[in-house]
Amino acid sequence: MKKIMIVDDQPIIRKMILLALQDEHFVLTEACDADSAYQLMLKDKPDGIVLDVMMPGQLNGFQLCERIKQSPELSGIHVVLVTACGQIADQEFGRALGADAYFVKPFSPVALAMHMKEALLKEST
């Protein structure tokens, strides 16, 4: 089973992503901000994270992505940014920080689920 954490301050977005990612191969957890997500992932490292960029708290999604990718313990987490920050510069910035994929809101939950399955289950098939 692969663990995926969904981090977004909007409950409706988290619910939509949870529904899209429901799969027998995934264990899903959620957090409402980057600060609590970071604390959770230190205790129980996920295999993947679906991460909003603009959230309340001390950390935004870009900062958490950078922190994950710079950490020897966490750098292997597959980070997918899902955000309304859709400018090319935002996408390039996210990728420069280490994001493995970037989805712009509104996005296709089906495409996100397909991406996560492909990224996290490829070694299982």
Rank of each mutant, 00 (worst) to 15 (best):
V7Q: 01
L112K: 09
Q87H: 12
Q39P: 02
A96T: 10
A84S: 14
G94R: 07
S71T: 07
I13L: 07
K15A: 13
D9A: 06
G57H: 01
D8N: 05
L121Q: 03
I68Y: 06
H78Y: 14
D47V: 01
L64C: 09
P46T: 01
G94T: 03
M1E: 10
M54Y: 11
I6A: 07
S36W: 09
E66W: 04
D100T: 05
P11M: 07
V110I: 13
D90T: 06
R95T: 05
A89M: 12
A113L: 07
D52F: 06
L42A: 05
D47M: 00
V104N: 07
G94A: 05
A89D: 15
P106C: 04
L97T: 03
S124M: 11
T125V: 10
M114G: 12
D23F: 05
A20F: 07
E123M: 07
M55H: 04
Q91R: 14
A89K: 15
S108E: 10
H78M: 13
S71N: 12
V82M: 13
S124A: 14
K43S: 13
A37V: 03
I13P: 04
E30R: 09
L64Y: 08
M54T: 15
D23T: 08
L120C: 02
L112W: 05
Y38G: 06
C65N: 07
E73M: 15
S124C: 10
G61L: 07
I13K: 01
I77A: 09
Q39Y: 04
G48I: 00
V27N: 12
A37K: 08
E123P: 00
D52P: 04
S36C: 11
D90Y: 08
G86F: 08
V110E: 14
I49A: 10
I4Y: 09
K69N: 00
D33Y: 00
M1I: 11
I17V: 15
K122T: 03
F103K: 07
H25I: 00
K2E: 10
M55N: 03
P72H: 07
A101D: 06
L59S: 04
Q63P: 00
K117E: 07
K117Q: 11
E30C: 09
A34I: 04
A119D: 00
F107N: 06
D8I: 03
T125L: 12
Q63W: 03
A96H: 07
A37Y: 04
Q87T: 15
Q39T: 14
S36L: 10
Y38H: 13
L97D: 01
I4L: 09
T29V: 08
L97S: 03
G76C: 08
A34P: 12
Q39M: 14
A31F: 00
F26R: 02
Q22L: 05
Q22K: 12
V82C: 15
Q22F: 03
L19F: 11
F26H: 04
D100Y: 01
I12D: 13
A96R: 10
I68L: 04
M114S: 15
Q39E: 14
K3C: 02
H78F: 15
C32H: 13
L42T: 09
P46E: 00
L97W: 00
I77H: 09
A119I: 01
K105M: 03
S108K: 11
A84L: 11
P11W: 12
L59K: 10
G94N: 02
N60A: 06
